[in-house]
């Protein structure tokens, strides 16, 4: 199922793009992140704890940026495993300049496997939106910080 949305960040595309490629920034923005380290070029290892209501899963995984066009777009490949199942996703981010900032259009196809797929499929749409909202609101905060 294709999920998509968009968020407005009060910063020009060049700054937003830079933030999205900064591991320190990402480690503060990715929801529930416990650790996020660079693992090669444009590739990260991460440990994330996702909590939706009572469901809590500790996910181990990788985030790889497979394509990028400077200041315009990025394609991400995400693979996360946990005892409750596996969550993979192929996602795109497109940066569009708008007024005094950037509208980030995100789109992704999540692939759930294991227990979370067999009992959680009805929630994936909402969960993805929640995670995206959290990510972008934190990104907005990062964007507000004074540029060093």
């Amino acid at each position: 199922m294709l999920l998509e949305g968009s968020h407005f960040i009060h910063s020009p595309p060049s700054r937003v793009f830079a933030l999205l490629n900064d591991p320190d920034v990402l480690s503060r923005c990715v929801p529930g992140v416990k650790s996020l380290v660079l693992d090669g070029t444009d590739s990260y290892k991460a440990q994330v704890e996702v909590a939706i209501g009572p469901v809590k899963g500790k996910f181990d995984g990788k985030i790889a940026i497979t394509e990028k066009v400077q200041d315009q777009s990025m394609t991400l490949k995400v693979e996360f495993k946990s005892p409750v199942g596996i969550a993979n996703a192929l996602g795109t981010l497109k940066l569009e300049p708008e007024n005094d900032g950037t509208t980030v259009h995100w789109a992704g196809e999540p692939q759930l496997m294991g227990m979370i797929a067999s009992v959680g499929a009805r929630l994936i749409g909402g969960v993805a939106k929640v995670q995206a909202d959290l990510f972008f609101s934190k990104l907005e905060l990062e964007a507000q910080k004074v540029e060093s």
Partner: peptide
């Protein structure tokens, strides 16, 4: 820790190990 009331949402989730308080 989690509070336990009637348990009929929490305990099935725990039995599937989607939650492990």
């Amino acid at each position: 820790a989690k509070l336990l009331a009637g348990g009929h949402s929490l305990i099935p989730t725990m039995k599937l190990r989607l939650a492990s308080p």
